[in-house]
């Protein structure tokens, strides 16, 4: 599928020099936005959720986990309930007011409704294949 939203500048190829594009985590001296940028580019599928895949704390996050794990792809999840700074920052980063949020191949895919509909139409499989080379 074509443009699904905001493009993330990849730290490795990004021509722009800014704090946000370094991908450094807070532990490495970056800020939270930089940390998010690093996360979504370092992992094929990233899920910002309430709780953990084993113990989701909200129905929408639960649904997102169920759909993504059904494809058997490696899932990097971030529990925003344990990180209040990131809970606010991810909404700003994606310009999206709700959790969960899903990134595939460094691109913002949407929330649980979009994930569900893309799953039902078969688009999600194509996107995951395209980003991860999953057969």
């Amino acid at each position: 599928m074509s443009d699904t939203g905001k493009k993330i500048s990849l730290p490795i190829v990004g021509a722009e020099q800014s704090v946000e594009s370094t991908g450094k985590s807070r532990a490495e001296g970056g800020d939270v936005m930089s940390e998010i940028s690093g996360e979504v580019t370092a992992h094929g599928v990233v899920l910002y959720m309430k709780g953990t895949p084993e113990a989701p704390m909200c129905g929408f996050s639960h649904r997102a986990v169920a759909i993504l794990t059904s494809y058997g792809v490696p899932l990097y999840s971030v529990n925003i309930l344990e990180d209040q700074e990131k809970r606010q920052a991810i909404k700003e980063f994606s310009s999206w007011p709700t959790i969960p949020q899903i990134y595939v191949g460094g691109e913002f895919l949407g929330g649980s409704d979009i994930l569900t509909q893309m799953h039902q139409t078969g688009q999600l499989e194509d996107v995951l294949k395209g980003a991860l080379g999953v057969s």
């Binding site: 599928m1 074509s2 443009d3 699904t4 939203g5 909200c58 929408f60 310009s95 999206w96 007011p97 709700t98 913002f108 895919l109 949407g110 929330g111 409704d113 979009i114 509909q117 893309m118």
Partner: peptide, 28 residues
């Protein structure tokens, strides 16, 4: 328009409400 764009349009229309009064919004 793609779904993501449609949802962004809805969130923009409900910008104030999404900041607190509405906790969850399922969209079709």
């Amino acid at each position: 328009k793609l779904l993501i764009k449609r949802h962004r349009m809805v969130y923009a229309a409900l910008e104030e409400e999404m900041k607190g009064p509405i906790h969850a919004l399922t969209l079709e």
